[in-house]
Design a protein around this nucleic acid. Structure first.
Lengths: 138, 138
DNA sequence: CGAGTTCATCGACGTGCGTCGATGCGTGTG
DNA sequence: CACACGCATCGACGCACGTCGATGAACTCG
């Protein structure tokens, strides 16, 4: 993977919002290559933008991933370790790990290793970016 | 079919548009148990809600469908016939028809037959409903 | 009525995805 | 140091999805 994404200017919003949640674990320098969204109802999507957007929406197109993301987004302390995610979604540990990887590669969550465990946290700015794509016409 | 409409406005929009044309293809084949979106960052998603949401996000997980939806959402007169959608996306007519069906069954677009042609239009309220799911925590 | 147009459906093919058991790697613990 | 634990990766399987040519249904026009 590691596609050379050059669609638009980068993650200024993500960094800015990330600093607004102090209790969230300082995420590892994993690069969140979240491209800025194109306004869906304003101008027609180009092919490259459509491919990028489709990839991010695809991360939300699975019930297990949506539940995982919801669990992370509603976590009291902002992060949950994998061992505490397996039971709630009712899937095997490899399956949960796979879905978390998909979410991470889509920039929707971040992971941080603390000792034996790995803690995942949602990235609110990434959801906000996708939200802007669905914004109504100005 | 035709259960009581007690959900969100996005469904009303579909019904309203659907009833305006008698020969319209039925938008959804009698399902939609949990239509109203749950706030993703407020409470943890249940399994049924997750399945329903995943189905709608899946409609946005394909580049061709995103471009079709964008074309419809930015249409000057609010609707485009199929014959004018085939060339812009660069796919065969059956493929375009297939993607439009997926979008229609997800409630994101509506179709109306006018003479020989079939005109598709975006449902802004459906996009707004999905947008609410991605809303930040209150 | 017959020819032409528009769109949906069908059948088929190749690919990708979700899933799980088995395995490997890194990290604490006795 | 040996063992247990947590998580990622691998390999494999089954199924769903995207795609297109061919066909069919509905409509228009001459």
């Amino acid at each position: 993977m590691d596609p050379s994404i050059d669609c638009c200017q980068y993650k200024e919003g993500i960094v800015a919002v990330a600093t607004s949640s102090p209790t969230v674990v300082p995420t590892s320098p994993a690069q969140v290559d979240a491209c800025c969204p194109a306004p869906l109802q304003d101008t027609a999507l180009g092919e490259a933008e459509a491919v990028d957007l489709a990839r991010r929406f695809a991360a939300l197109s699975d019930p297990v991933r949506l539940r995982l993301l919801s669990l992370l987004a509603t976590a009291a302390d902002g992060a949950i370790c994998v061992c505490d995610l397996v039971e709630p979604v009712g899937k095997s540990q490899p399956t949960v790990s796979h879905h978390l990887k998909v979410l991470r590669e889509a920039g929707l969550v971040t992971s941080e290793k603390r000792g034996t465990n790995v803690w995942y946290a949602a990235v609110p700015a990434a959801l906000e970016a996708l939200r802007d794509v669905l914004a109504p016409r100005r």
